[in-house]
């Protein structure tokens, strides 16, 4: 905020300018993001189904009671935790290793980055479609490769067998998210001044010391901010699962986000969908507060 223009013209003209510059943004976001959002929360407490729009009325917490009695919802709830944290850990660790390896310039680094970061430009939906094809139980290429290498003796129904389905969609999600961490962490790594390493080297620090006493502490704000945002993002990300299994087989890959989309698009029960949404918000709020207190740093999310 150092670059603020000092008021030189009369205040009224300046505040008019501010007002008219902000008006379109606030109107649009208010009307098409916040209004539907609060409306959706309101629906959580209403009997609101597409099949009977004449009978919309307040029913208190009934929608919550109903969904908590559905095994599918409870499974989606526990799946959400695996989906988020297993995906996050692998995305982060692999992305971090990659960023470390890409830190020093080498011949062809730019081209290499292009080839591994391109997934950013693809939609989660398409990535799900492609992985669905590769993981096909009869003619999928991954089965073929595993058979060739000798790791399996029979083809696995990765997406049709509930034992494998959740792990399979998580693998696709890990693949998709590595680039995000690699990009973010690489940018942070490149901002570390070289003399920090030099003086650590003079003090006799080896590679591991440098990693844990120089690199990681220096980029901690980025690590905190990017993992925090990523958890929220993965939690709210139904696209890959929708494309690969649409929650099946037998609900074994539903997470809360896909469960809710399913209620809206195929179930037509806006009330129950809203209830699932409210539970998601509560979980996200609890997580964010817990995470920011545990890391004791507003630095990452400071703006």
């Amino acid at each position: 905020m150092k670059n603020t223009v000092k008021a030189r013209k009369p205040v009224s003209s300046q505040s008019k300018f501010i007002f008219f510059c902000l008006l379109p943004a606030i109107l649009m976001v208010g009307m098409f993001t916040f209004y539907p959002f609060f409306r959706g929360i309101g629906m959580a407490f209403q009997n609101y189904t597409l099949f009977d729009l004449t009978d919309i009325h307040f029913i208190g917490l009934d929608n919550f009671k109903t969904i908590f009695e559905q095994p599918q919802f409870l499974q989606a709830l526990s799946n959400s935790f695996y989906w988020v944290f297993v995906s996050l850990i692998f995305q982060f660790v692999i992305g971090f290793i990659l960023a470390l390896l890409l830190k020093k310039p080498f011949k062809g680094r730019g081209v290499y980055q292009g080839f591994i970061f391109y997934s950013w430009a693809m939609s989660g939906f398409l990535i799900g479609i492609i992985w669905r094809w590769m993981l096909n139980g009869q003619i999928g290429v991954i089965n073929d490769l595993l058979l060739k290498v000798g790791l399996i003796e029979e083809r696995i129904g990765f997406l049709s067998d509930p034992k494998w389905s959740l792990a399979s969609v998580i693998v696709a999600n890990v693949w998709y998210g590595i680039a995000f961490f690699a990009i973010m962490l690489l940018a942070a790594l490149q901002s570390i001044p070289d003399d920090l390493y030099e003086s650590a080297g003079i003090d006799g620090a080896n590679w591991f010391h440098k990693l844990f006493y120089v690199t990681i502490p220096y980029i901690m704000p980025t690590i905190i901010a990017s993992t925090l945002l990523r958890v929220i993002w993965i939690f709210n990300f139904p696209d890959i699962i929708y494309a690969m299994t649409n929650g099946g087989p037998a609900g074994s890959t539903h997470i809360l986000a896909t469960y809710m989309m399913d209620k809206i698009m195929f179930g037509g029960d806006y009330g129950q969908a809203g209830a699932a949404g409210v539970i998601m918000i509560i979980l996200l709020a609890m997580y964010t507060i817990f995470y920011l207190t545990a890391t004791k740093s507003g630095k990452g999310a400071d703006f």
């Binding site: 409306r39 629906m43 809203g274 918000i281």
Partner: peptide
């Protein structure tokens, strides 16, 4: 510009990045 509500608008915009968007889909 410094003005009343600047911070609040930024908070509101950040908030939209965190809330599950599809709560608003049915409305």
């Amino acid at each position: 510009y410094h003005f009343k509500g600047n911070k609040q608008i930024m908070y509101a915009f950040f908030l939209t990045q965190m809330i599950p968007a599809f709560i608003g889909f049915a409305p």
